[in-house]
Design a protein around this nucleic acid. Structure first.
Length: 786
DNA sequence: CCGAGATGTCGGTCG
DNA sequence: GACATCTCGG
């Protein structure tokens, strides 16, 4: 171990209490635990699987376990490996452990996200996979740009095979811990069979650039461990105790990583909930958690089943839905909180009405109606399936002036201006960062277009130097004339000065950053920009400079920033939160709205098309996650009509609604003012009505009233009604040879039918496959309000 | 090289 | 409907 002694992580514990003193200390933190939690905390040795249902005090058990390991003197802080998925979870764990220990917790170097710990390990052993320890971490943008270059070089049409898709495929392989050599033959048909080859090229190129992507942070470590048993053995010895949060979300690479490390002491404690596995599309394997007892023989399984979050009705509704899934490990959640409100269910005519209703409901809850206490907007959340659903709420809340916050938009460090600025910093710190160079050569516009950039590329390549050096040579040889040439000379010159300035101890890194942004013309670029978002961008740049204060130098800043992508906004006035169901995992709110429960939207059609029953079950778990976010009031809603990509579509209530146990649900009568709400689907006496009616199992008076209102719908949406009629005639009623009309492509003839898509030979636009509902019979074309 | 207009695309999301 | 990317004319 001596070879790593320069790193605090392997030095003696920094907790200033002697072990003996700690062992003698009372353990008051154990008192607040229920029997199951206590078992999970005290069973320290051997593999432990903690099955923790929603709201059962999982984090409490996990953090108490860490505290217990430390206080009992069983392990030193730096001998514990504790992994989470998000920075937020890592931060919270750190805070709660130090609270339990009643002291600041500095000495846990191995508590962090998979990626943060991966970086730490990889910096130590970079040379084993051909990197230098100061490698850079590419963000998604850089990755795509790199792949685009490779595709261009390989002469692959990036229309047919977009770089994004390749990046997805490579990510997938990396999630499964597959290096280019290991990719199964069956997987390699994409990209004209060149996908694996491109993957290999990509990896080679990254080594040349001394860079790696997020997937590599895990993949490289697995490779290192597999090829160097001695290195692995060191870590196996060192990490006496391993804890893993959200185990159901681990992918194959993470799983292998964990199994390798746990191979020594075998003291691994995984916490998870198979019912909350919602990241299958990102490579997570529910199988990991289902298989735990097989992987770790003699594993001790603890179930946390007492829920401290929600009322019995909310819990009952959630349990009813999730019960429809097969292959669960099975938990029976219970609560001592009896009574409370039933889950409320309401249908609406369309998405706008749904937004209107939720807005009013939020306001009245804020005032405190129905005998309930007034509630802060901070305590309410709207959880949607897909982010495009957010817009109708934002629109509505802006009109009525209801304060809201959207969680999970583009994060601070993903914004364009921040990335540009960072690229300038990167290039000033390491002049060989070609990707950074490409990003900023012509930002702001310097008159250096494709041609000029190609010249620089050629120059760099033929001399075997970095792009910046290449640019210097181009300038010296006057390879580019005119304005572009002069601007390039200025840029090269500037970078030389900035690099010197950063090394100069006289100039603080904060000043240096400001000078770089000003000198390069980047600040001016946004000052001259007249678009409405320009002031905000300048503001962000200021914030970026401010963030530098927490670091000693630019290098240190760049080092950390690639892994810390979240921006905590300071608490302002109370606001209702809008976010996706995915983003809501791990959060809780007294009141939760779950809009858009319609088949096709939720469960998402795409998910079911791609993954069949598995996809449906994941959607169901998403429903479970949604309902269990609510503490006291949970409101589920759906709309009969919704505008999707500018087209009106009608839908049936989600099948998950049928799965809600009747005893726990209250069907609300629509407010009436807007006339009829959901029942309006029956306006033309079409089959839609019967289908919709049979799609639910409710017979409550409220529900029947809801149904009987059909036909009373107001006159507010004539266009939609028209479109709906057209939609319904359009679905599947075509045969080959029919003349049709399409809003965009004009007239054409149906050549064939594939599922819901039509193969159409358009008179002007050629042959295309089009979803049937966007097409009408040619003789009805006049009725179409396109 | 640039900007305007046309065209194509559209899940969820953590590092 | 919104946004990124492409095409074309200046």
């Amino acid at each position: 171990m001596s070879s790593y002694s320069e790193d605090d992580a392997f030095e003696a514990a920094s907790i200033p209490l002697s072990q003996r003193a700690m062992a003698a200390r009372p353990m008051p933190y154990l008192d607040g635990l229920n029997p199951a939690q206590r078992e999970a905390v005290e069973k320290l040795d051997g593999p432990v699987l903690m099955l923790a249902g929603a709201g059962t005090g999982k984090t409490k058990a996990l953090t108490t376990r860490i505290a217990h390991l430390l206080v009992s003197g069983t392990a030193q802080p730096n001998e514990i490996l504790a992994v989470t998925f998000t920075n937020k979870a890592a931060r919270e764990m750190k805070n709660r452990v130090s609270k339990l220990m009643q002291m600041p917790l500095e000495g846990m170097p191995w508590l962090g996200t998979f990626h943060a710990i991966g970086v730490k390990l990889l910096r130590r052993h970079a040379e084993m996979v051909g990197l230098k320890s100061n490698f850079t971490i590419l963000d998604t943008d850089d990755q795509i740009r790199l792949l685009k270059q490779l595709l261009a070089a390989a002469n692959i049409d990036d229309k047919r095979w977009p770089a994004r898709m390749l990046s997805g495929i490579i990510d997938n392989w990396k999630n499964r811990a597959l290096t280019p050599e290991n990719v199964p033959v069956a997987d390699s048909s994409a990209f004209d069979g060149k996908a694996v080859d491109l993957y290999a090229q990509y990896q080679r190129r990254m080594l040349e650039l001394n860079a790696c992507d997020f997937g590599d942070l895990l993949l490289h470590i697995v490779t290192i461990f597999q090829k160097n048993p001695d290195v692995l053995a060191q870590y196996q010895r060192w990490f006496k105790y391993i804890l893993v949060d959200e185990y159901q979300d681990t992918n194959v690479a993470q799983y292998m990583w964990l199994r390798l490390l746990a191979g020594g002491h075998k003291n691994i404690c995984c916490v998870g909930d198979d019912d909350q596995s919602i990241y299958g599309w990102r490579g997570a394997e529910v199988g990991n958690i289902l298989r735990f007892e097989k992987d770790f023989p003699g594993a001790h399984v603890v179930r946390l089943e007492q829920n401290y979050r929600s009322t019995e009705h909310i819990l009952g509704a959630a349990s009813g839905v999730i019960a429809a899934n097969a292959g669960r490990l099975g938990k029976t959640l219970f609560t001592e909180a009896k009574g409370g409100e039933k889950v409320r269910l309401i249908g609406h005519w369309d998405g706008e009405e749904e937004a209107r209703w939720i807005g009013e409901e939020a306001e009245s809850m804020q005032m405190g109606t129905r005998g309930l206490d007034p509630m802060s907007l901070d305590d309410m959340a709207i959880l949607v399936r897909a982010s495009h659903q957010m817009r109708s709420f934002e629109d509505r809340f802006l009109t009525i002036g209801l304060p809201y916050r959207v969680i999970g938009g583009p994060r601070f460090y993903e914004r364009m201006e921040i990335r540009d600025a960072m690229a300038y910093f990167r290039l000033a710190v390491s002049p060989t960062d070609d990707l950074a160079f490409e990003r900023i050569v012509n930002t702001p516009k310097r008159g250096l277009g494709d041609k000029a950039q190609q010249k620089i590329q050629t120059m760099a390549r033929s001399n075997g130097v970095s792009l910046l050096e290449g640019a210097r040579l181009v300038v010296e040889t006057k390879g580019i004339g005119g304005k572009g040439g002069a601007e390039l000379a200025k840029l090269v010159d500037g970078l030389t000065r900035w690099a010197a300035m950063i090394r100069d101890p006289q100039t603080s890194h904060i000043e240096a950053a400001e000078i770089i942004l000003d000198d390069s013309g980047y600040t001016t670029h946004w000052q001259n920009d007249k678009t409405p978002e320009a002031p905000g961008r300048l503001e962000n740049l200021k914030e970026l400079v401010k963030a530098l204060e927490q670091f000693e130098n630019l290098q240190g800043f760049l080092e950390h920033v690639s892994l810390i992508m979240d921006n905590e906004s300071e608490a302002e006035e109370p606001k209702i939160s809008i976010m996706t169901l995915h983003a809501a995992k791990g959060l809780e709110f007294p009141a939760v709205f779950l809009p858009g429960w319609e088949d096709g939207l939720f469960p998402s059609q795409r998910s079911m098309d791609e993954s069949g029953l598995k996809g449906l079950e994941e959607e169901r778990r998403l429903a479970y996650v949604g309902i269990t976010r609510a503490e006291a009031i949970c409101t589920i809603s759906f709309a009969a009509n919704r505008r999707v990509y500018g087209q009106w579509q009608s839908a049936m209530p989600s099948r998950f609604i049928d799965e809600l146990p009747e005893d726990h649900v209250d069907v609300l009568t629509p407010p009436g003012l807007y006339g009829g709400g959901y029942g309006a689907a029956g306006m033309t006496g079409s089959t839609l009505h019967e289908e919709a009616a049979s799609a639910n199992v409710y017979n409550s008076p409220g529900w029947k009233r809801l149904q009987s209102r059909s036909g009373q719908r107001g006159m507010s949406q004539p266009a939609e009604a028209k479109n709906m009629t057209i939609d319904m005639t359009a679905t599947s009623s075509f045969t080959a040879g029919d003349r049709i009309f399409h809003g965009k492509f004009g007239y054409g003839t149906v050549m064939g039918i594939e599922g819901d898509k039509l193969d159409i030979e358009f008179d002007k636009a050629g042959s295309k496959k089009v979803v049937a509902k966007f097409v009408v019979a040619a003789d009805m074309a006049d009725d179409v309000p396109f």
